[in-house]
Amino acid sequence: MTAPLIRIEDLHKDYVTGAGRVPALDGIDLEIGAGEFVAIMGPSGSGKSTFMNILGCLDSPTRGRYLFAGEDVAGLDADRLAAVRSGAIGFVFQGFNLLARMDALDNVALPLVYAGVARASRRRRAAELLERVGLGRHAHHRPAQLSGGQQQRVAIARALVNAPRLVLADEPTGNLDTHTSVEIMRIFAELNREQGLTLVLVTHEADIAGYARRLVRFRDGRIAGDEVAGGGAP
């Protein structure tokens, strides 16, 4: 049994629109233990992206509790949330979100800049991670010179560079072909299996979700299902 890294209790998020208050999350209770690999699925508008944003400390809930590694982060201000992101959370996005004018190495090292790591060790650590995702020889390529799969691997290296306790991947294969998707998902599964990395993945593709070991289904801002999944075995 793993210790709960994330504990969420009765979490609500409302959006205020012209039509009044629209609940995006409507009472979520969830625990995720360290070392878990969780896939979140659901139709668009089900609240899974909103949930990911709150999970990643990019946004704050309207109501409810969010304990991250024992700390209540639901009510933190923007700068404290930034500190949590900087120290403990890595992101992988659908659109890669690399900075176009920086080479792969600098992109990977970027989180360390904001964590206050010295330049020499930043570069060393970034090079290490590029090596681990198999891009050691592309360190000085810019994103435009890399394929989609390579860009996403750079993004994964960036997410891992500050040794996070949690990596969030939002549709990480959404912009990739099937072959490359498999490649990326294998990297995720391996990181989870061999290094005990806690991973939360949002996807709407069942076979992508199949790499995870637990599957949480969202519908209308609530959790509609929570089941054990394939465990990345295909």
């Binding site: 990019l58 700068d79 900087s86």
Partner: peptide, 9 residues
């Protein structure tokens, strides 16, 4: 992106 990877305002 910078904020997501830990930049404060």
């Amino acid at each position: 992106i910078r904020m997501a990877v830990g930049a404060r305002s």
